[in-house]
Design a protein around this nucleic acid. Sequence first.
DNA 1: GTTAGCACTCAGAGCTTTAGAGTGCTAACG
DNA 2: CGTTAGCACTCTAAAGCTCTGAGTGCTAAC
Lengths: 346, 346
Amino acid sequence: MIELSERQKVILSLVVHEYVRTANPVGSKNLVRQYHLDYSSATVRNEMAALTEAQYLSQPHTSAGRVPTEKGYRFFVSGLIQMRELPEETRRMIEHQFSQAQQGMDGWIKLAASILADQANAISVVSAPLPNRTTVKYISLISITNKQILMILVLAGGQMQQRFLFVSEVTTQTQLNEIADTLNRLFEGRNSEEIRILSRHLPDMGSAAEEIIRTLLSTLYDTDARQTGEVYTEGINKVLAEPEFSDSEEARRTLRFLEEKPLLQDFLSRTTREQKVGGVQVFFGGDGLLKDIANCSLVVARYGMQGIATGTIGVLGPMRMAYSKNIPTVRFLAGILSDLVADSGL
Amino acid sequence: MIELSERQKVILSLVVHEYVRTANPVGSKNLVRQYHLDYSSATVRNEMAALTEAQYLSQPHTSAGRVPTEKGYRFFVSGLIQMRELPEETRRMIEHQFSQAQQGMDGWIKLAASILADQANAISVVSAPLPNRTTVKYISLISITNKQILMILVLAGGQMQQRFLFVSEVTTQTQLNEIADTLNRLFEGRNSEEIRILSRHLPDMGSAAEEIIRTLLSTLYDTDARQTGEVYTEGINKVLAEPEFSDSEEARRTLRFLEEKPLLQDFLSRTTREQKVGGVQVFFGGDGLLKDIANCSLVVARYGMQGIATGTIGVLGPMRMAYSKNIPTVRFLAGILSDLVADSGL
DNA sequence: GTTAGCACTCAGAGCTTTAGAGTGCTAACG
DNA sequence: CGTTAGCACTCTAAAGCTCTGAGTGCTAAC
């Protein structure tokens, strides 16, 4: 593959930019007029022909303008992924909203989702931070009735799980407090595997405690298996306005993808697992796990504390999305969430 | 207004039924053929003219079939709201899914939302159970760092809230356990108002405890103000397949309504507040709070324990929805959730 | 290497035509 | 008098048609 000339790079970027803006195939004459290029439309036509040849652009039909291909977008994005800061003003505004938010990981995540959907005018997708293998932070046991217990589990990364369980033995809140104290001493900071081994050599604490540990383990296994916490989504209505979703079949496929939480979680956890915190990645729909969302793309970053607890934040929209705005926005929000995870010390 | 004749009622019901099935204006000839009526299309035409006169039906244009008006739907639904059981088989199937579900209010609610969306092929909307004024069930305090605390609040109805707080005084987990014990003894079963008064005459427990109580109260106020817990929604993709949503502007309005959580919560809590648990109501879009979702309707029921903690479960779809299936489904699921709320004893 | 000029292409907007489903009315029927 | 067959009339939606204009590739001149 031959290198692109400087001028070709410029023209390719401008085509992408213009297409993102208008959603219409971009013609040579128009491009020259819009951007006051100091060469003529015929020259642009020649370069466009070359870019089309090299698969960066394509033509919907012979006598139409050019549309970027996936390869074209990739080129465009690769120039964007490193640099670009969000304008000071926007950063201030976002930070302000976080400073006013109610405390708690859940609230922050929802706020981030809401801000991102708003800024990007597309669908935001945010998953709660979770370590590869969950560790227990705190166990709380609450007596509901004589033989019924509510177990609340605080996990690393600020995630919570609640389970009801029934025990055969009557247990009082005082007894539960004791059990909880013991378990907290033993299990704090441990993961499912460690707890499984530890619990084998435990002094007998009665059948209730056994039942509690069993439930605890099954909850941890569940969480480990999911690998990604709750996924929040917002801004679906925004993206319906885009022309690529005016075909409702297209829109349905995308929404089904979003509502298939396991699929989405799988994708988020798998594809970004090795990714360093802070780095923004762009995925293009069409093949692999994203085959259902052809001509969409996904800008994601991992946030949190590397090796401790990480989640993902991203924006899903038509492939023709405003990368130059969305990439810095995602990066900035990932940074904020990372700070919050670190500060909350979970 | 004159009463409808028996035959008119039959015809009206059939028109609604047929229109729900096909989404096309219903013509006289077709109706006779489909349902083997023992009178002719001319007779049906006459009756239809009368029903149109009386505003139960309308014509998109002079030479088209009839479409039910909102009044027509109301009539149809009024005959359905009381009776009709879900088929034994479906009930078994649903019960089975619940029996296999993981424990915990959150999980049940999501399961209910998922089943309902699936059964109705429309959008399900389920809100968590919450009393008019929340009462505290259990307070758990977890030391994160020296001066940072995670407060977990279990509220009546099984809802949980988490907050982070910073205190100026160094506090250990042991101290926190003591404070939590005291607060639990004092505040269990109390609502925000009672706690506010109680906390005035409290023995001094140090500045950390004060800060904790302040956060506790503000969380309770927040929750009271919202009046409805988290709202889960599922099945958006299903409804996009309906012809009334092929116009993306229409679809957007509906989705915006759904994503405006405060609006939705407000509607759910306000309009069904007085409603007895178990009764199914049908709301038609177009005016009042539902003005944004013209030609949609909402079948809802309240579930939970009257006066203790109630939530809502419902299905939102095109006004042309399968009421005869959806109404019993909503009623049945509301029943199951009510049982679960009762059993979990919160 | 660049550019003006030109013949050619083709999607989409706008218009016309047509088919058929549905109506209301009238007159005949039991 | 309610019911029904028959008929002229209405009106949408689909199909076919034309025409415009943006865009192209190529050639020849600069």
